[in-house]
Design a protein around this nucleic acid. Structure first.
Lengths: 276, 276
DNA sequence: ACCCGTCGATACCCGGCGGGTATCGTTCGC
DNA sequence: GCGAACGATACCCGCCGGGTATCGACGGGT
């Protein structure tokens, strides 16, 4: 199977529409139809059920979408890391959510910089739920992820710290004077929705939010409240306050890196992180 | 980057010889030279230093060899799993070393078969150090690996059991009457070498061995002794005996599966294994 | 009910690229 | 210094990937 065919397949599987997929790929529709047909014939498997009105994935197609994305990520990672190995000379790219681990990150960078033989570290602060792809496709060498929100599937990881969560809300909010809250009391609160975030933490009934700045502003405006890790305290504006939520899931910060990584610099960084 | 180019590159990187690599790939040498040159130009990276007498990998080439193998495995796995998703209907392939986990495996199979909704399990008994590639390229869904011998890099795992190791030797051997031995006392013993096994466990000074039958026969003949996990006792012939080696590394049996696996059957099998 | 719009499949053509053979340039060993 | 080994280069050919034109099937609107 060639990566081109696989890219074509993934495009169609994501769009479920040959015309739009061809458009996205920058080719015409007929060659795309032919390529998919050829792929199906070579695999001996039907990947799509298509009528002239609708395109749907078969079970086998679903498998190929999942596995194929991973394979394409691996190809891209191979390419990117090869380029970097040639030019950038040592130097690590660390990716984490903007605003998260705000106290841990500077400590880690300082401690690592003090290590003998340390290399420069580029810090990439990305949006929520983007770190995974940075790490998977080779744009980053290492990430700080937060369980149970992020998936560590396919990465090697070490736990760094665990903390409880608190409700962040405006000082004038009715719940602001409570000393403790339970999750069930938040059912009717406007918890934000995080687009792009899969699974059980996609959020509640509140507004859509893409980054922490937006979130904090919406909280200040009384349009949302949010359950965040305790360490967020250090970057809250003065007019926001927090109330512990003991029964919210514990948040574990982990340092994660792609398997097979063999760089000395990365090993040192990980060792430094564990010792913190 | 197309998989074809990557396959070509890996062939050359492994052979370090364009002619032999082209032979292995079933093409002529000139197109291969051109393809590698084109790949280097597209990546903007020199992958090989070649004189007319020798070919060697550059650092960037070393990275691409490691990452590229992983990517090719991922492509192959995607293809294989797609084919299986279409035809085989549910059914799991479990791979383990022939002769290892001889007591755990039947228990696991029985316990799993008793689970509601269990599916048939194909057991593949492969040679030493082959399970990894079975799992990586999609020929198997799950494996029993043995730390610290096998690498679990890139897999999800759960520990199942830990055991000490014993020295296996003929009953008449001078050391056979000892009640305990230390690793240092084995330095001059003919420990077997396991071809294909990388790293610090490649073995000692004795004969080359490919499977347990060979090994046990060589021990019976007095041509080798071996340090094996305790559980090997159950499949030793009567004329062999064992002596504990307390300071040999503990062997941990883990169940391992590829990340991203989402099948219900696999999840049940893993749960069953953990409960044993 | 009929017609038209949508969408994937098919037919056909063209250009580029992958693969082949022949040959060259360099380097080492005898 | 010559020949053998080996990778690079030159050149040709056939196939395949991509384009345009068109078909066929299905639905929805009037």
């Amino acid at each position: 199977m060639e990566t081109r065919e696989l890219r074509y397949f993934v495009a169609v599987a994501e769009e479920l529409h040959f015309g739009r997929a061809a458009d996205r790929l920058g080719i015409a529709q007929p060659p795309l139809s032919r390529a998919i047909g050829l792929l199906e014939r070579r695999l001996g498997v039907t990947l799509f059920t298509r009528t002239s009105r609708a395109v749907a994935l078969t079970p086998a197609g679903t498998v190929l979408l999942r596995e194929g994305r991973a394979a394409l990520d691996a190809m891209e990672a191979a390419e990117r890391r090869t380029r970097r190995a040639d030019t950038d000379t040592p130097g690590l790219v660390l990716v984490t959510k903007a605003g998260a681990s705000s106290d841990l990150l500077p400590k880690l960078l300082d401690a690592y910089a003090a290590e003998p033989g340390s290399v420069p570290i580029d810090v990439v602060l990305c949006g929520v739920a983007e770190q995974e792809s940075y790490l998977r496709d080779g744009r980053a060498d290492v990430a700080l992820l937060h369980l149970p929100f992020d998936s560590t599937v396919g990465f090697d990881t070490e736990e760094l710290s665990t903390e409880g969560q608190v409700l962040v809300l405006p000082s004038g909010h009715p719940l602001a004077r409570r000393s403790s809250l339970s999750m069930t009391e938040l059912d009717d609160q406007p918890l934000p929705r995080w687009p792009g975030h899969r699974g059980p933490f996609a959020g509640g009934s509140g507004p859509e939010v893409r980054d922490n700045t937006q979130l904090l502003q919406l909280i200040t405006l009384g349009r949302a409240v949010a359950v965040l890790p305790e360490s967020c305290r250090s970057l809250l504006p003065p007019d926001l306050t927090v109330v512990p939520v003991p029964d919210a899931p514990q948040v574990t910060t982990v340092i994660a890196w792609p398997p097979h990584s063999r760089s000395r610099a990365l090993a040192t960084l990980i060792r430094t992180a564990i010792r913190l």
